[in-house]
Design a protein around this nucleic acid. Structure first.
Lengths: 153, 153
DNA sequence: TAGAATCTCGACCTATTTAGTCAAGTATCG
DNA sequence: CGATACTTGACTAAATAGGTCGAGATTCTA
């Protein structure tokens, strides 16, 4: 699992939305400025997150984005799977994006058995962390601040 | 960490060499045929593994490749790091290929702290498995065979 | 010692992915 | 109405992936 720039931006944006959950929508522009993400690129990313059902948008003057589900219902595994595809290092051990490989017998493939362990290790971490957990970590690391937009993400 | 085709070929080739360790060299052609790897591509890969110090070669009629060090001295982490670069999902948590990211304070970055855990999980598995371990797994999975080249890898 | 077998080295190629940019359109608020 | 924001789809440049190829250098063996 390698996190692309796009993926990192998406996580940061979702984390901002998580920190602001319950207080209306946040504008693309604000996220982009605060997180130093190219605005046009972020538009594209948020749009993608919207069609995937992670966020909702509101158009017009007081428009912006917010999380569609509660922050505790969105795991990093879900997000990254949507953005980057398989979490597994090879397709033949991926549960959600399985792809047969060329070896004659998967059950007897030693490399596969190791990659299986790697996959389980990765998934074990990422399934266990939700956006809400991330928000908790932010507050733990930085202490409670007045304005949610002031948090460094 | 995503394993490319090239990386998978390299692992398979090294595993073949591991299974044949102690009994001279193995020709590129044999590995390529047996593992169904494009020969020219495998040449390139083995050459790379040679300059990285994983294998030795012998030229001429009875030429071929063998492992440079003992199979128990080569960890998958070493191999994959050489082939694919960082094991970590993002540069800012990589020990061997560290790269600063754009966030203002790494110590307070929640995403980074999760990615750190992911990295540790991946490295934990891959540091613990050597080529010798892989060979053991092959034998465990397939039972002992006469000819090392008959093992399915 | 010629010739066949084998590795060696670097250049080359094509398709896909990554990281963006941009213009024109649509909805919403005051 | 008009300003503000999201929406949609097309477009682009650079890097990476997955190979291929030709010509050269070694080594064995007859």
């Amino acid at each position: 699992m390698k996190l692309s720039q796009r993926g990192e931006y998406a996580l940061r944006a979702l984390l901002v939305l998580g920190m602001n959950h319950g207080s209306g929508v946040v504008r693309i522009r604000d996220i982009a400025q605060q997180q130093n993400i190219p605005r046009r690129f972020l538009e594209q990313i948020l749009n993608d997150l919207k069609s995937a059902g992670f966020v909702l948008s509101k158009r017009g003057v007081a428009g912006g984005y917010r999380l569609q589900r509660g922050p505790n219902e969105i795991s990093l595994a879900d997000i990254i799977r949507h953005l980057e595809g398989p979490l597994a290092p090879v397709g033949c051990v991926s549960v959600n994006y399985y792809q047969r490989c060329s070896c004659p017998d998967e059950g007897k493939c030693a490399i596969r058995s190791v990659m299986q362990e790697v996959r389980d290790a990765i998934v074990g971490v990422l399934e266990g962390v939700s956006v809400a957990h991330l928000c908790d970590r932010v507050r733990d690391l930085q202490g409670p601040l007045e304005n949610p937009l002031d948090y460094i993400i």
